[in-house]
Amino acid sequence: MDWKQLWEICSAPDNVPIVLLLFLTPFYLWYGFREAIKNDRLITQLEADPALAKTHHRRHQPYHPAWDKTVHVWPYLLRIELLAALVVTAFLCIWAIYLDAPLEEPANPTLTMNPAKAPWYFLGLQEMLVYFDPWIAGVILPNIIVVGLMAIPYMDTSPLGNGYYTWKQRKFALGGFLFGYLVLWLALAIVGTFIRGPGWMWFWPGQTWDAHRVVHEVNIHLHELFGITDVWEIAIFGGIATLGFTAVLGGAVDFALRKWKPELFRKMNVIQYAHLVGFLIMMIRLPVKMVLKLGFDIKYVWVTPWFNV
């Protein structure tokens, strides 16, 4: 176990945020779920007692007839935000003093650093480059992420959960988001930061990052398993495989939604529903491709002279 190596990675000033995330994410997950479960119990209670539901509106300070149902933003919210701002300001000042910008030598165009890593918040994207063509991992997927995040309010119009933690009422929405954030973003960033060493090779935590290490990596394309050699046949085969898989996956998602979330299908119009299914397909395809690559050494499914998928 090379503790020095591990310490070097963890203590690099540009890795401090991701190390903090390692601790803060579980904490807030735990906190959020704890609150959500308490609320869910209350929700169950109120659903069972309509009379109480009419008057009860706070979990921590239960109903009192003389109390206001709503309070003003100023000062009751803003003073809390001020407090948070003060704490964060002091924290950032101290951080800035004790951790200097990690400057390195002047860039040398003839010498690339190894490993060459993006800032921590882009490491998820960089990790995706292992699994996809650069134009997919670097252009299409980031755009879909941004567009998808922007599209959420238009697809999810449910007011449930506004202002309080709940799991029971928003299982699908929260589950989808947590899958996207924890698995597709944070986990990839963690892999990129702690696991990927020189040559973007896989080093377990504590393994020495040896720039001279050589590994034997097999990369095959799906069509090679079927012995297809002609370039057009390869393109057509890949197209059928990719589009067919997408169609099958789309059907499965649609089936699952109708079975377990029938109200979604009822409430949404066709554009909302189509986008929802589309984004879900994209989210599922990424880990599928990762499994293909890491588990079966399959680099590309669809190889054409212009692009690869």
Binding site: W67, D68, L86, C93
Partner: peptide
């Protein structure tokens, strides 16, 4: 009502001192 009654003076004072210290 605790939302009205509860004072944040001490935490805000302490946080302000922390900023001054920083």
């Amino acid at each position: 009502d605790p939302i009205y009654a509860k004072s944040l003076s001490i935490p805000i004072f302490l946080a302000s001192m922390a900023v001054v210290g920083a």
